[in-house]
């Protein structure tokens, strides 16, 4: 039990009539990164809030760093760092003052708090802005300061709740570098994200969560294997051909994009399989524009597992009502 940094068994949680978590099971081994991947409203943030003792679970056995989140909440708090979706920094204090304040609240003592603040300012590329009030920071700088604040006490376990949502591409890359270096230093990280690329890039293992349950778990490669080794993407010259092709192609996890007139499908990546598809096209007299084979993305995985694309989740749920 103690070798798992985070252990969740049958976690349930409802808000009034709405059951948000319907029995989550997850284990995160020490020193690894778990990516909790799912669309808006899947239950990712609720899970993180329960793990960080901000919310009480309705049911289940949950331990963090070997401590029970309900009965040993204070021990859990000593073991974790939390970065939420919004940057929880004090606007009027400077970056350095924010960090020192957090050090003191973690009971590091005055000198150690100052030293730790300097270290983190350096590590998070905030030295130049250290003495400016945080309200003058850009979105990326705030998010970095927020993450730095959660790491003041060098907790062994770090929760990152959508750390790059709303960031520009440059800030996102910088954040990814920081998470990678945390991982190298041996921290256990639970990262939630709606970005498939982010989970793919940072996480050792990925748990896909949808409507309050874990629908798949494994390494990025294991998940991708579930949708075939390679994906074949075919684009057509005319809309007519595209529509006709869509009606005759059979296979698993077919995705289509009407605007770009492309269809993609799972294959084993063998010449025979690709040839089979092309033969069908030729027999029907369809005019192919381009053809390419690529490794499946987590988008493909999500489509296969849930029957809908991650980004379309909101529309889907509206339709269901």
């Amino acid at each position: 039990m103690h070798d798992a940094a985070i252990s969740i068994k049958n976690l349930t949680k409802s808000f009034k009539d709405l059951q948000v978590l319907k029995g989550i099971d997850l284990t995160v081994a020490r020193g690894t990164v778990l990516g909790l991947l799912g669309p808006n409203g899947a239950g990712k943030t609720t899970t993180v809030r329960i793990l960080s003792t901000l919310l009480q679970p309705d049911g289940g056995e949950i331990s963090v760093n070997g401590y029970n989140v309900v009965t040993q909440a204070d021990d859990v708090r000593h073991s974790i760092g939390l970065t939420g979706q919004y940057a929880a920094v004090d606007e009027y204090l400077s970056g350095r003052e924010n960090l020192i304040m957090m050090g003191r609240l973690y009971h590091l003592g005055g000198e150690a708090s100052k030293a730790r603040a300097e270290e983190l300012l350096e590590q998070f590329d905030l030295v130049q802005a250290a003495d400016r009030p945080a309200k003058t920071y850009s979105g990326g700088m705030r998010r970095r300061l927020d993450l730095a604040l959660s790491l003041v006490a060098t907790p062994p376990i770090i929760f990152l709740d959508e750390p790059t949502t709303g960031l520009d591409p440059r800030s996102r890359l910088l954040m990814w570098d920081i998470v990678s270096s945390l991982k190298k230093s041996g921290s256990t990280i639970l990262l939630t994200t709606q970005y498939l690329e982010e989970a793919d890039r940072l996480a050792d293992r990925i748990a896909v969560i949808d409507r309050g349950i874990v629908i798949a778990e494994g390494t990025a490669d294991e998940l991708k294997d579930r949708v075939g080794k390679e994906r074949l993407e075919i684009s057509f010259n005319t809309e007519n051909d595209f529509i006709k092709a869509l009606s005759i192609i059979e296979g698993e996890a077919i995705q289509s994009n009407k605007e770009e007139k492309t269809i993609s499908l799972a294959t084993g990546g063998t010449v025979a399989e690709v040839k089979r598809v092309l033969d069908i096209m030729e027999a029907s007299g369809l005019d192919i524009d381009t053809l390419n084979l690529h490794k499946p993305t987590l988008d493909d995985v999500f489509l296969k597992l849930t029957g809908h694309q991650a980004e379309e989740k909101l529309d889907e749920s509206v339709k269901e009502k």
């Binding site: 960080s52 003792t53 901000l54 204070d74 708090r77 000593h78 974790i80 939390l82 939420g84 979706q85 919004y86 940057a87 929880a88 920094v89 004090d90 606007e91 957090m102 609240l105 973690y106 009971h107 604040l149 959660s150």
Partner: peptide, 13 residues
């Protein structure tokens, strides 16, 4: 609203 309460609540203080 800023999440500062959440942050402080996750501290042992």
């Amino acid at each position: 609203q800023r999440g500062i309460v959440d942050r402080l609540k996750s501290l042992p203080i």
